[in-house]
């Protein structure tokens, strides 16, 4: 299975939040570690049929990459906008 299938990206003010549902197991560790608490459960499902995560719309995501670092499955990629350009 392609690891990137069904991935979705949410554009924030400072960074792009990309989630790969083939990797997300829905453990929720990222939600607790987010310093600005902008990660919430998504309607999309992860690999075990549990909810995946997303950032809230119009969020205050600062692009700090803590969620990317604490994800045991590497399901999150944060791309700061200044780097993406």
């Amino acid at each position: 299975m392609d690891l990137k299938s069904n991935s979705y990206t949410i554009e924030g003010e400072k960074a792009y939040f990309t989630l790969f549902p083939t990797l997300c197991k829905g453990c929720g560790l990222c939600m607790e570690k987010c310093p600005v608490k902008v990660i919430e459960w998504s309607d999309k499902l992860g690999v075990y049929g549990t909810p995946a995560v997303q950032v809230k719309e119009d969020s205050k995501c600062t692009g700090c990459k803590i969620c990317e670092l604490v994800c045991p499955d590497c399901a999150i990629t944060i791309t700061p906008k200044r780097k993406a350009k």
Partner: peptide, 29 residues
């Protein structure tokens, strides 16, 4: 725009997602 998976280079991609439980610390170590 295409975004890549942020995974260490030496990880073997074809065996991911790995077999550990959700939230297991092994993935982090």
């Amino acid at each position: 725009m295409e975004f890549d998976i942020s995974m260490p280079k030496c990880w073997r991609r074809e065996t991911k997602g790995h077999k550990f439980c959700p939230g297991c610390g092994h993935g982090l170590v």
